[in-house]
């Protein structure tokens, strides 16, 4: 066997080139494939909608035609507003509530998760309650909170934040705590300080975990904001629109579909936002399977 490195290195270069071009092609193929797939799925969804209506012969009050909902969006409501603009205004408010709640939850959840992971006794003491508190029905607390703190957007942001806090705290704790002994030994062999171990090892290795929690939290923050808008006294927000549409459902069924569609778009936008940030932040990471 020869120890000469010449041909071996050359071979590696060519594999590397091949690797890169393959990767680029793969990415292109998967991007265009994904768009096609999404278009097909949208078509399937609309087709399914209309098929269901046709097959069950559902009246307008159970399932309107899709185009009826679209028509409604461009009509003028009783306040003299263009419907989709009115829905958009309410969505904006709910979005602000959810986003502020999520921001607070990120800070608080990250801090709590880190504390739980780094201090064994704190972790053992608090973790069961963090898991338990997730089962607290937020609807039950929301009315009391609204009475307490008023119907302003801050209250709603707080409720949204409460719901978003737990997934972030739990995944942060898990991610920060789940570091291989070899990696810790490696850092110890460099005489790394606790701070260095945290910032150079624990935090970066926890990022994929934290982002899975963040995605759930983004969806939860929208749910929290909507739930917070439900108790009596709220004037604006997509939750209020859904409630009013429900009351006038028999008169204007399209409005409930439009409102729900709006809420779904908002949820999608929040989660999509987190995903885009994740794509940028986790650029160098191995692809995540669970999301």
């Amino acid at each position: 066997m020869s120890a000469s490195a010449g041909p071996e290195v050359a071979a590696q270069f060519s594999t590397r080139e091949r690797f890169l071009t393959e990767e680029r092609a793969e990415r292109l193929r998967s991007a265009s494939g994904r768009i096609t797939l999404i278009l097909i799925l949208v078509a399937l969804f609309l087709g399914g909608w209309e098929f269901l209506k046709w097959a069950t012969d559902a009246p307008r009050t159970t399932l309107p035609h899709f185009h009826e909902v679209v028509d409604y969006l461009f009509s003028i409501n009783s306040q003299g507003d263009v419907v989709w603009l009115a829905i958009g205004r309410n969505l904006r408010l709910t979005f602000i509530e959810a986003l502020s709640g999520l921001s607070v939850a990120i800070v608080a959840g990250f801090a709590a998760g880190t504390l739980m992971a780094l201090s064994r006794w704190t972790g053992r003491g608090i973790m069961p309650f963090v898991i338990g508190a997730q089962t607290v029905p937020i609807v039950a607390i929301a009315p009391a909170l609204v009475i307490w703190l008023g119907t302003g957007w801050e209250t709603k942001a707080l409720i949204a934040g409460f719901l978003a806090f737990f997934p972030i705290a739990v995944t942060t704790a898990r991610g920060i705590g789940d570091v291989s002994q070899d990696s810790l030994d490696l850092m110890a062999s460099y005489g790394a300080s606790r701070t260095e171990v945290f910032f150079k090892l624990r935090l970066p290795s926890a990022m994929p975990y934290i982002f899975t929690g963040l995605e759930v939290a983004a969806a939860f923050s929208v749910i929290g904001a909507i739930v917070a808008e439900l108790p009596v006294g709220s004037q604006d927000g997509i939750g209020v629109v859904i409630l009013t549409s429900q009351q006038y459902f028999s008169l204007q069924p399209e409005s409930l579909f439009a409102a729900i569609g709006g809420a779904c778009l908002l949820g999608g936008a929040m989660v999509g936002m987190v995903r885009v940030i994740q794509l940028v932040v986790l650029r160098g990471y191995r692809a995540q399977e669970l999301s």
Partner: peptide, 9 residues
Amino acid sequence: AVPVISLAP
């Protein structure tokens, strides 16, 4: 991503 509660009605 869909806020499930909005589907409740």
